[in-house]
Amino acid sequence: MRESKMTLADAEKGDVIKISSLGLDGVMRRRLLDLGFVPGALVEAVRKSPLGDPMAFKVSQAVIALRKEESSKIEGELFNDE
């Protein structure tokens, strides 16, 4: 069993995470909120770039890629169905 509290950067392909908080400020925070990374939203890790970073996430029906710098500051809980 994995720890259920995690950041998006820890996610593995296929994981669904429920966002609890965003540890970012300023324009990046606004941008992430605009894209649907809002507390309470469900995010699915879709795939990693060939070089390992960035990672693509499915959020509010769209696929958005984030670098580790940002995804490691988005906290949430593992929400996998299985």
Binding site: R31, L32, P54, V63, I64, A65, L66, E70
Partner: peptide, 11 residues
């Protein structure tokens, strides 16, 4: 400066 502000949509 450090690389910042990265979001990219894959439509």
């Amino acid at each position: 400066g450090v690389p910042t502000h990265y979001t990219l949509e894959l439509p």
